[in-house]
């Protein structure tokens, strides 16, 4: 198996996928983790999704290891990569789990908290978000994933585009074929096709 030759950047390698209820956060963490299980890794996922469809922040902690099971909560300051389906959620997660060496991939499209909608709270500008994320990460990729997903015909594909971008980052041995293998388990025809397109778009987003 290829994984035998692949040395994890750290063991466990810690990924946080974050977003807002309804964005497909949990699905993204399952897909990514199943790709890695197929590659022979031990995975532990911890998910906070109790009120996930009701506007709350959602977070999946993924621990990738060749040794065993880890805590389903990543210790503070120990995230290696943050994949944010919503940009300010990346900032929130960095405050607890970030460190100067963390990589951040963030979707650019805001989902406004109810306090912002009512006018009680302020949502930062795109430029302010970018500055903060740059300051708090080793490297940052801002990806217009929702816009691209709308282009494909369905904004829910945002999560798959972000996973494609992470795959391209090359920190873990996951390729388009790994994605196909996992998605073929549950999808066929047009639905499979559109997901593959989304994943590929994500990979391309990191190249440019």
């Amino acid at each position: 198996m290829i994984v035998k030759k692949f040395k994890l950047p750290s063991d466990p390698y810690n990924i946080i996928i974050t977003g807002v209820g309804g964005q497909g956060n949990v699905m993204a963490s399952r897909v990514l983790s199943n790709m890695l299980v197929n590659r022979g890794f031990m995975i532990t996922i911890g998910e906070t999704f109790g009120a996930s469809q009701r506007g709350g922040a959602v977070m999946s902690h993924i621990r990738v290891s060749s040794k065993g099971t880890w805590s389903p909560q990543i210790p503070k300051g120990k995230a290696d990569v943050i994949i944010a389906l919503e940009p300010i959620e990346a900032i929130r997660v960095l405050a607890a789990y970030g460190h100067p060496g963390v990589f951040v991939l963030a979707n650019t499209r805001p989902v406004y908290p109810v306090g912002v909608i009512t006018g009680e709270l302020n949502y930062p500008s795109r430029e302010e978000i970018k500055l903060s994320l740059q300051e708090l990460s080793a490297q940052l990729w801002l990806i217009d994933a929702t816009d691209q997903a709308i282009g494909l015909g369905n904004p829910i594909l945002t999560n798959i585009i972000m996973i494609g971008a992470f795959a391209k980052l090359g920190k873990l041995p996951i390729l388009l074929d790994d994605f196909i293998k996992v998605m073929e388990q549950t999808l066929t025809g047009d639905k499979l096709e559109i997901n593959l397109k989304a994943f590929t778009l994500g990979m391309e987003a990191l190249e440019t």
């Binding site: 709350g56 908290p113 109810v114």
Partner: peptide, 9 residues
Amino acid sequence: KAPQRGLAF
């Protein structure tokens, strides 16, 4: 920059 995300319908 990360306003609290209260639960909503």
